[in-house]
Computed example of a mutant assay.
Amino acid sequence: MARPSGLETRWSGINGIALSPDRQPLYWALTAGTTVFRIPVEALLSHTITEDARGAAVEIVGHVGANADGMAFGRDGHLYITDVTHNGLVRVNVQAGQAKIAARNDNVFWPDTATLAPNGDIVFTASKLNAHFAGAVKPGAERYLLWRLKP
């Protein structure tokens, strides 16, 4: 995996964060970013590591090919990331650093928060947040949907 450089100048906020199922690496993406990063939890919790060493521990997992938002790990070990660009979900093989669209639907507008349901499905919200930003949604006309993917 590649080690990113100059992260402090590129970070514009984290939107999407997930702890791996084995609770070791922590994964995240930047707000409106297309890249997934990870860092060993030990590097985050260490009181003796320098900030430079902590930064050097950050790895680029891969590029998701879309604007990433919410994320959650599935029971299959893949990282699922809501895909604002293609109205759906991207499945990331974190070992191989490969991403592909897992599901998309033209009725999914601005998919956001994702979680793992008790039965193993990936559940995520969609809110037309882009329309809210544009002022195109009138107060009281908001519509928030829950979507479900059976991996």
Results as ranks from 00 to 15, higher is better:
Ala32Cys: 11
Thr31Met: 14
Ala29His: 02
Ala32Glu: 15
Val36Lys: 08
Asp22Ile: 07
Gln24His: 14
Pro21Gly: 09
Thr35Asp: 10
Ile39Val: 13
Arg38Trp: 07
Ile39Thr: 10
Arg38Met: 09
Pro25Gln: 05
Thr31Val: 13
Leu30Gln: 13
Glu42Ser: 12
Gly16Leu: 09
Ile39Phe: 08
Pro40Glu: 06
Pro21Ala: 09
Pro25Ala: 06
Gly16Ser: 07
Ile49Gly: 09
Tyr27Arg: 00
Tyr27Trp: 03
Ile17Tyr: 05
Trp28Leu: 05
Phe37Glu: 03
Thr50Val: 10
Gln24Arg: 15
Thr35Gly: 08
Pro40Ile: 00
Val41Gly: 10
Ala29Asn: 07
Phe37Tyr: 11
Phe37Thr: 00
Tyr27Pro: 00
Val41Lys: 14
Leu19Cys: 05
Ala18Gln: 04
Trp28Lys: 01
Ser20Thr: 07
Thr34His: 14
Ala43Tyr: 01
Val36Trp: 09
His47Trp: 11
His47Met: 13
Ser46Gln: 03
Thr50Ser: 15
Ser20Ile: 05
Ser46Thr: 00
Thr35Phe: 09
Leu45Val: 02
Ser20Trp: 11
Glu42Ile: 04
Thr34Val: 11
Ala43Ile: 00
Val36Cys: 10
Pro21Asp: 08
Ile17Phe: 04
Arg23Met: 13
Ala29Phe: 03
Ile49Ala: 11
Ile39Ala: 09
Leu19Gln: 07
Leu44Ser: 04
Leu45Met: 07
Leu19Thr: 08
Ala32Gly: 14
Gln24Thr: 12
Arg38Thr: 06
Ala18His: 04
Gln24Met: 13
Leu30Phe: 09
Pro40Met: 02
Leu26Ala: 00
Asp22Arg: 12
Tyr27Asp: 03
Leu26Val: 03
Thr48Arg: 15
Gln24Trp: 10
Leu26Ser: 00
Gly16Val: 03
Leu44Thr: 01
Leu30Ala: 10
Arg38Asp: 08
Leu44Arg: 02
Phe37Met: 05
Arg38Tyr: 08
Thr31Cys: 12
Thr35Arg: 12
Ala18Arg: 00
Thr35Pro: 09
Ile17His: 04
Thr31Trp: 13
Thr48Met: 09
Ala43Phe: 01
Leu30His: 05
Ile17Lys: 03
Gly33His: 05
Thr34Pro: 08
Leu26Thr: 01
Ser20Pro: 06
Leu19Gly: 07
Leu45Trp: 01
Arg23Gln: 14
Pro21Leu: 11
Val41Ser: 14
Ile17Leu: 12
Trp28Asp: 04
Ser20Phe: 09
Thr34Glu: 15
Pro21Thr: 03
Gly33Ile: 04
Thr34Ser: 14
Thr35Ser: 10
Val41Pro: 09
Leu26Met: 01
Gly33Ser: 07
Pro25Cys: 06
Arg23Tyr: 10
Phe37Ala: 00
Gly16Tyr: 06
Phe37Val: 01
Pro21Met: 09
Pro21Phe: 10
Leu45Gln: 04
Tyr27Ala: 03
His47Cys: 12
Ile49Thr: 12
Ala32Pro: 08
Ile17Gly: 06
Ser46Ile: 01
Glu51Asn: 15
Ala29Lys: 02
Thr31Leu: 14
Ala29Glu: 05
Ser46Leu: 05
Thr48Gly: 15
Thr50Trp: 13
Pro25Gly: 07
Ile17Cys: 06
